[in-house]
Design a protein around this nucleic acid. Structure first.
Lengths: 213, 213
DNA sequence: TCACAAAATGGACAATCGTCCATTTAAATC
DNA sequence: GATTTAAATGGACGATTGTCCATTTTGTGA
């Protein structure tokens, strides 16, 4: 059994991570100080050093946690649907643009970390890992679709489709970042599906362009 | 005549802005301190307060300058080509993905500022202005194309094409940010043109997918 | 060449940063 | 209930932050 002692310890550890993410979302990385963090977590100053050895390690850990949460969210969605390539793609697109994943807090956090990624190796690594995992899921799905479509050069087409789809989703996130209140989720999904249906007319049409409930 | 005095003054002002941009590109916003800036500009500590009233104003001004540089670069390219819709779109896409505009320094700066945009009104405003100006150029070009194409609902199609194209370009920038050394400029352009040619087959084909020399 | 003023300097300053550890608290064990 | 010890506390610490101004420098016009 996990003793009450260890339980509290882990809960405090998590509180610190959540406090970092809240602060980054609300005030940005440059205003996320040790004082800010421990005030939000309602813990004492020494806890950061105790649990993580220093502030930088804590921030890195928060970035890792956040990346993992995103991927887990997408992956969980895939287990609620069928296993065909188009079902996977549809679910990834709709999930990536859903309120549960694409929301003000997540977007703030994600872009704040991205802005620092180039100068912080650990953050870049988590960002890359998330990206590579997602890319892999999407490519595998498109590879199956391209094979079925009996086109020439299916591998290259799958590659381009993966690249194009992810680039477009990325762009939609940026739109949301810049104009969260005027962002039109339906329009965003429709445009991605317009792209999908022109590339694979037999596999996609605009009827798939629905918001995730 | 502009006296030598005023000339030096303006040069120093510009040195400070350039120093901020260099520092942001190399070290990130959070490591861009007053000490760092004046060391790069080889000027004295008081100059920031003298010219800009404070560090925050200087950083805002650097963000404004950077946004303006981007837009001016694109706009200058448009004056070297024809005035048809497809010529404009081709030039914008090729310019946006050219080495002169999409390079390590610019990308670092752009994403660093973006990461702070949500928490700094001034930076968000410049980011928005650049975005709106570009969006306007692209929409006008697509509107002309959609009109010629004699399709139904040309306005909506032009809107979607604008949204999709800009989202894709945005995504390509992110790719470059994350993997500047393995980024394939040719592939990026090809994918955008694949999108364009499926939307407007009479106006675009893959022959336009060439790097800007 | 001299007097004036605009521009630039660089250090003083309080505030805040992150780190670290002597001390206190409280869960676990006897 | 007493003892042990892991966990948590919170303040001291030096380093660094951005601001500001008394002083010095230097171009300009008399």
């Amino acid at each position: 059994m996990t003793g009450r002692r260890q339980e509290i310890r882990e809960q405090n550890r998590l509180s610190l991570i959540q406090a970092v993410l809240d602060s980054v979302a609300e005030k940005g990385i440059s205003e996320t100080s040790v004082s800010e963090i421990i005030q939000r977590a309602e813990l004492s100053r020494g806890m950061i050093h105790l649990h993580f050895g220093g502030k930088d390690n804590l921030v890195d850990e928060a970035a890792r946690y956040s990346s993992e949460q995103y991927y887990n969210g997408i992956y969980a969605l895939l287990e609620t649907t069928g296993q065909t390539g188009q079902e996977h793609i549809e679910m990834i697109v709709r999930g990536d643009l859903s309120e549960a994943i694409l929301n003000k807090k997540n977007v703030s956090i994600w872009y704040a970390f991205r802005g620092e990624a180039r100068n912080r190796a650990a953050i870049a690594a988590f960002s890359d890992t998330r990206d590579a995992k997602l890319r892999n899921l999407v490519f595998n799905a498109f590879a199956r679709i391209a094979k079925e479509a009996e086109i020439e050069n299916p591998n290259q087409v799958a590659r381009d489709a993966t690249h194009g789809t992810l680039a477009m989703l990325e762009g939609m996130w940026t739109d949301y970042l810049l104009h969260p209140d005027s962002f039109d989720r339906n329009e965003a999904i429709r445009i991605v599906f317009r792209f999908l249906s022109t590339m694979f007319p037999k596999h996609f049409d605009l009827s798939g362009a629905q918001l995730l409930e």
